[in-house]
Every structure is written in C-alpha cells, then in structure tokens.
Amino acid sequence: MNLRPPARRGSGIAAKALSPTTTPGHTNPNKQVVIAATGAPSPLRDRQSIYHLRCSLCRHDYGCNGMDIKARLCPNCQGGQPGEPLREPATLSLFD
C-alpha cells in the first residue's frame, strides 16, 4: 500500500503574489524590461500599481500599470502611449 500525504492547496503558480509579467527582470515581446514595482497607485486603472519599465532599445524609463506590461510599447521609440508618472519612493527620515 502506497501512502502519501495529501497535496497542498495554494502552492501552485496562481498562489504567488507577483505574476511573471510584473517580476523585475521580465522582458515583454516588445523588449520592455520591468525594473521595479513603485508601489504607487495607477491614476489610469483602478486597483493597479505602477511599475518602472525601461526600453532595452533606447533605454527610456517610464511608468506602466501591471495590466499593460505584457503588450507595452516604448513611448519614446516605438510609438507607445505616454508612460504613467514615475515617482521617487518616499524616504523615511527621523531628522526632517
């Protein structure tokens, strides 16, 4: 008789917090690379946050919400829509 523990639920790909397209280092088919999550909310799409993208062709940096990363074109050299605003992350200082 072969006894095995039951399979764990929630351990598959769907349970991960980030999708592959929002993982830093991911490159979409149009050569746009995810640099980092900014944590800032997208003003264009509800419940989406802005990611820092960089075009690997012209090195242009811009913001993009998570849903649009997979098909995004560079606004500088590929005729894509203007990027969403990139904001510097807030820094915590005890001496301000």
Results as ranks from 00 to 15, higher is better:
residue 50 I to E: 00
residue 94 L to W: 08
residue 59 R to H: 13
residue 74 C to N: 01
residue 46 D to P: 02
residue 43 P to G: 07
residue 15 A to G: 13
residue 52 H to K: 08
residue 41 P to D: 08
residue 7 A to C: 13
residue 91 T to Y: 10
residue 7 A to S: 15
residue 92 L to Q: 11
residue 4 R to L: 15
residue 58 C to M: 08
residue 90 A to V: 10
residue 1 M to K: 09
residue 19 S to A: 13
residue 12 G to M: 09
residue 19 S to P: 00
residue 35 I to Q: 12
residue 96 D to Y: 15
residue 33 V to A: 06
residue 9 R to W: 14
residue 34 V to T: 02
residue 64 C to M: 11
residue 5 P to V: 15
residue 46 D to A: 13
residue 11 S to T: 14
residue 35 I to C: 12
residue 63 G to Y: 07
residue 54 R to P: 00
residue 71 A to C: 08
residue 24 P to Q: 07
residue 58 C to P: 07
residue 4 R to M: 14
residue 26 H to G: 00
residue 48 Q to D: 05
residue 96 D to E: 15
residue 3 L to K: 14
residue 77 C to G: 08
residue 63 G to V: 07
residue 67 M to V: 10
residue 33 V to S: 03
residue 10 G to N: 13
residue 48 Q to T: 07
residue 52 H to R: 05
residue 25 G to C: 07
residue 44 L to M: 05
residue 92 L to S: 12
residue 94 L to F: 13
residue 32 Q to T: 04
residue 7 A to D: 10
residue 53 L to A: 02
residue 25 G to H: 11
residue 28 N to F: 05
residue 12 G to F: 12
residue 53 L to H: 00
residue 32 Q to P: 00
residue 45 R to T: 09
residue 88 E to V: 04
residue 52 H to W: 07
residue 41 P to I: 05
residue 14 A to S: 09
residue 90 A to W: 05
residue 60 H to M: 11
residue 37 A to L: 06
residue 70 K to N: 05
residue 38 T to M: 13
residue 68 D to G: 05
residue 24 P to F: 14
residue 45 R to A: 11
residue 75 P to V: 03
residue 36 A to L: 06
residue 75 P to G: 06
residue 3 L to C: 04
residue 86 L to N: 02
residue 19 S to D: 06
residue 25 G to Y: 14
residue 78 Q to P: 03
residue 71 A to G: 08
residue 24 P to W: 13
residue 28 N to C: 07
residue 49 S to Y: 07
residue 25 G to L: 12
residue 8 R to S: 13
residue 46 D to V: 03
residue 74 C to E: 00
residue 22 T to N: 09
residue 85 P to Y: 02
